[in-house]
Design a protein around this nucleic acid. Structure first.
Lengths: 126, 126, 126, 126
DNA sequence: GTGGTCTAGACCACA
DNA sequence: GTGGTCTAGACCACA
């Protein structure tokens, strides 16, 4: 379901968070679908349960998932939460474009970079 | 000259580095123009002189500025330095695209964002 | 009869307990009225029978319901039970006031909220 | 500055979070004021630094404070964040009033409870 | 079993 | 020194 890239420099916790957001955005997971338990995912990813717990806590606090003690964690269908994340991602990307432009990157270079990453088969295996 | 955003999460050292690169790219500073002294800038920005020192060292080691003992630091006109910066900007932008993709942004949204920012006159004043 | 909100964060067992107390307080259920069997309710609510069993046990131990072997559980009319519930409700409310105060709500805001909800006819349908 | 009540049942992390929200709401702390460092507060409160770190992380993610690596954490002046918290507290309190009403508490009992807690000197020592 | 909290202690980047 | 991430492992409430 999720695959980590330990060499990427992106914190494990963030990779888990982003992974579930993406699974929902892509329609791979749907509302009220059960997530793997904290311990199960930790074991599969070979990371500490605390790290998964932290990711789940952040996902819950932002409304992406909801947790029921003793039952498990479930994907939320809260449109507001998911669109808020989408908006934040869009804003962050806009900032990145502005910064890159200021540092001298041309429009063409950026367009090509976007195309390249979307046609990059490796990145699809996530 | 430079303005820091402590709340942005971007390391202060990086903000200083990017700031001078930007000032050169935008034509606000030109080749051989003198930079403020480490202590002066540190005092103006209310940051630790060590942080400014570190930024200057990185800028010098990458050829963006050069130092003359007893005189100070000056903006360089080194073309190689510019291409190094260009490469770093390209790498940073690629990472931003990957993360945005991970969070569910579509290729189309990204392409449109790039187009928008390049046709946006306001963004030039940033 | 009862409806659970898994996303509310309130333990399922508590929701069942409060649900029956409310049904009695609102007059929807009356004294000696039969409750659904543990298994029946568990199946309808899609929860673990142990959870319903626990809720019934707590309701019985506090006198809100009573059980007859081989016949089932029934709503009680025990006045003492009601006062026990009343005390618990008062304690819970006090905690809520303390927390709200801790988070900066003014006395006035709280008093107005109480007034509003008691003059709010819609809230009776909840 | 902050005082914990270990017997209250409220998680330590939450008490720290609520404490700083309250200090800002009451005007005891103002925008851009420095918070004690993670380790300093942990030592003063005799709790684990991780617990304080978690509280600071949650406060930052909700915009109540902002952190600068190597410099410290500072109270934010983000009106939106603080009013969002205020709104949440008000909503939570409204829910508590509704529940209490359903469980049979009278308007008078609630008003008196609010008055009592606001005239309670012990609660002011927090 | 499942989520949640906490302590203990290591390690990293940044200032 | 300061924030941030992570592992290791205990313990609790709830189902």
């Amino acid at each position: 379901m999720l695959q980590l890239d330990l060499k990427s420099g992106v914190p494990i916790c963030d990779q888990i968070i982003n992974g579930f957001i993406r699974l929902k955005a892509l329609g791979v997971m749907s509302g009220d679908e059960k997530l793997p338990s904290v311990r199960e995912l930790a074991s599969k990813l070979s990371v500490n349960p605390n790290t998964v717990q932290k990711a789940y806590a952040i996902l819950e606090s932002s409304g992406v998932i909801y947790s029921v003690k003793g039952k498990g964690s479930f994907m939320s269908d809260d449109g507001n939460a998911h669109s808020a994340i989408h908006n934040k991602a869009l804003t962050d990307f806009s900032v990145a474009v502005s910064v890159a432009k200021q540092l001298g990157l041309s429009k063409n270079e950026m367009l090509k970079t976007v195309e390249r990453i979307f046609s990059d088969k490796e990145s699809e295996t996530l």
